[in-house]
Structures are given as C-alpha cells and as structure tokens.
Design a protein around this nucleic acid. Sequence first.
DNA 1: GAGGTACAG
DNA 2: GGTTCTGTACCTC
Length: 468
Amino acid sequence: MRSTEEPVPVAGSPAEAAAAGDTSKSAGFCTGTGAARPGPLQQLHRIALVDVNSFYVSCERAFDPALAGIPVVVLSNNDGCVVARSDEAKALGIKTGEPWFKLADAAPHLGLVQRSSNYELYGDLSSRVMELLGRYALWQEVYSIDESFLGLAGTAEELDTQGADIRAAVARHTGLPVCVGIGTTKTLAKFANRIAKQNKHLGGVCSLDTMDPEVVETIMSRVPVTGLWGVGAKLGKRLGALGIRSVADLKAADPALIRSRFSVTLQRTVLELNGTSCLPLEEERADRQQLIFSRSFSVPVTTAAEMRQVMSIYAQQAAARLEREGQQARVLTAYAGTSHFSQKAASFPSVTVRLQSPTSDPVVLTRAAVGALEDSILEGVPYTKAGVMLSGLSDAGAQPVFDEFVSAHEHRHIGELLGKVADKYGAASIGLGLAGLSSTKPDWTMSRKFFSPRYTTDWDELPVVRAR
DNA sequence: GAGGTACAG
DNA sequence: GGTTCTGTACCTC
C-alpha cells in the first residue's frame, strides 16, 4: 500500500522499448526466470502476489458507492494522519502520513472525502478475500491484511488467465479491486504486482513470463531501486552512492559485494531478482514473539490517576488478545511518552518487569502494568501516548508450571471468562477495576469523527438496501 | 542478550 | 493545536 514514486510506463513491444530510449542492454540478458523464455506448452510453477488496491479506501467504497471515482483518504487512529489514499487522492499530491489538520480546510474545495479507519470492517473483508484466494491456489501464504502469495501452475498463457479469473472473482464476491503479479520468486512476484498496479492497460495482471525479456529489462532499468520489496529510503541512498539506482542496477550487482557492504537481506533480494528463490514460503503463521497494545490519546493524559486507568485498560486489551491466541507472556513492559512534536521537556518512561511465571491472566497482567509505571509518571506532564508490551511469549500449556507460582485466581480462568462475556455482550460490557463499568468513556479515548458503519460485523450496522 | 535501526503494510 | 499502530530481522556491542 506504499507507492510514492512516479509510475513507470511499460512499453508495449521491444521496438517501443528501444524507441523509448533504452538500448544499453543486449537482447540475451537474463530475465530472472533463470532460463530462456518458456515455450507455449511448458508447465510452469509460479508465485503470484495478489493485493487489494488502496485496501482501506476500497473497503469503504465497497459499501458506499458515492465514494467511487472521487478522491478519498482513510485516516489513522484519532484521525491523525493519512494512511490510505485513492488514486484520485494520490493525483492531488496527497501523501501517506500527511496530517489531517493540514488537509481539513482544503478538503471541501478539493472534493476530498475522509473516513476514520474501521479495522473491524477491514479485518472482516480481509478474511473473505483471503479465503477466496485460497481456492485458486496450490498453496497460500497470507502475507498481510491485504496481500497473499499464491502458488499457481500452468502454461504461461494459463497463468495469465488464472490471474484474470482471480481478479474477477474477488471483484464479484467482495467488490474489491485487486492486482496480480506473477513471477518465479517472491521478490519478482512483488515487482510484477507493482507493474500491474501502475500500468492500467495490463488489466491488473502482470506475469513476467509472458512479457518480452527486453521489455522486462527496460522496465527494471526505469523503476528506482526503492520500488523493490525490502529497499527503503535509507538503503536507496546508500545504494545510490555506489551508482545502483534502478532495479536493473541491483539485479546486475555482485551478490557477494552486496552481502559485505550491506546485509544478507539485500543479498537475497539480488538473488531473487535473478530467479533464485531465497525467501521461504510460510503457509503456517509463526507463533508471535511479542504483543503490543499501544495508543495515542485524543487529549493528553496529565495525572497519575488517569494513567493508572490507561494502564489497566491497555493491559486488559493485551491480555485478551494473548488469551485468544492461546499464548502466555513472561515479560511485561509498560511505557508512556510525551509528544515528539513538542519542544517542551520530553519524557518517555518505560518499565519492564519479569513475571513470576508465564501467564495470560488479566488480573496478573493488569496489576503488573499499573504497578510498573506507578513511580515514573509525573503529575502535570502531558503524556500523548502509552502502551503495554508483552514479550517472552510461549504457547499456553507448552511447559508445566510449578503450582506454587500460580496465583489463586488464575485457577479460576478469569481471562477465559472475560473473553466469553466480551464476545457475547461486547468489549465494553465487562472489565476489571479501573477498566470496569462506567457510564462515560474517559476523555482521552480515541476519537474517530468520520467513522463508517461496521457493515459486516454488527447487526445494528448492516447496510440498508432500498428497492422500488 | 539488549538496544538501535530499517523496513513493511 | 493537532502527526498511527504492529511486528520482524538484522546489526552492533
């Protein structure tokens, strides 16, 4: 969902490519498939990378046709900054990360429409897309909320057709637009996906196998190296100093040199660009290593009493997630911080405590989080964010725990009980101590002024269709 | 092993 | 006045 560079046009033929100015490479240059162009009947096993265009914006559009064809942005928590943009918003020059307060006044004149992010909706649509994609593939790796690697097989022509079929199916069943990139390695599939996204005339599918190798080479010589998966701004700058500016430059670089001057990660990128797979397929999601519940406040928290309430609520949220995933934590870190944008005395208290034994018990974790920051919070300091991090994670029940180390209430499985109640009656229905029932929300809680309904996950917010 | 940096989405 | 959140890998010490 990141795209800051200018689109790179794709030439339609080698002749066009040459006419467009790049004649520096020979016709026989390796294309990354590691072999000559495949014959028309050759069975190929390939990796596809499917992702949803401007995912959050597309989710909003799927339920609100008025958003089609106009500039739309989706904002981060507290409506702080832009996290997703429609093509029309990109065309207006709006950048990811741009603070909303700088856009708000101009928005009506620009015809720009904004939405608060609605992760419940996006998560639900994501599951539907992923389930659908899995039906089209030999294997599937769900890589992010809006991306999946898929294993496809067939002739070059059949791969193109499958890509088109996948696009049509997702559009029909979810209303979301996707692009499909196909290549021999994950890095090349990602690259192909980018080409598909930036060149509308390809119809949303780009399979490197069916393209003329010279055309591929031309494209690679024009896409900046920072357009590659894993190459960000910092690396781009360092590479540029060595004269490596385009994807083609990096592909032609000596892997050993890249390994010594940079990292094994970038060396893998070079190898993958040349058709050697270095990144394993990860169909099974690895157990997570840490879990963070962190939020900025809508208005600063300035008292220790308020911060205790923050810690209580955040710790219970973290505990609930841990419980749901069947994991336990050995270490808890509680932290808070003042604004990075204020010149006044900055303060970032952070306290880590090792728990007696691995646990997901909300009573233990809440007590630990509230206690951890007790002595570090100064009255009157304007804290703008806080968080609870759980680490040293293990599978619940993976190792036996000496009974003496388990507190009495843990035997009563309070976390499990709270989870069941919350599932049935909503997250706000139950809580411990300072997170418990209260008629009004604390005023530091997240604000989302442009929130759309949770169309697919709440009976009270279903979309209404009228016919006559 | 801790802490910092970089990257991704 | 106001600028997200979550997670991993690698490097250095």
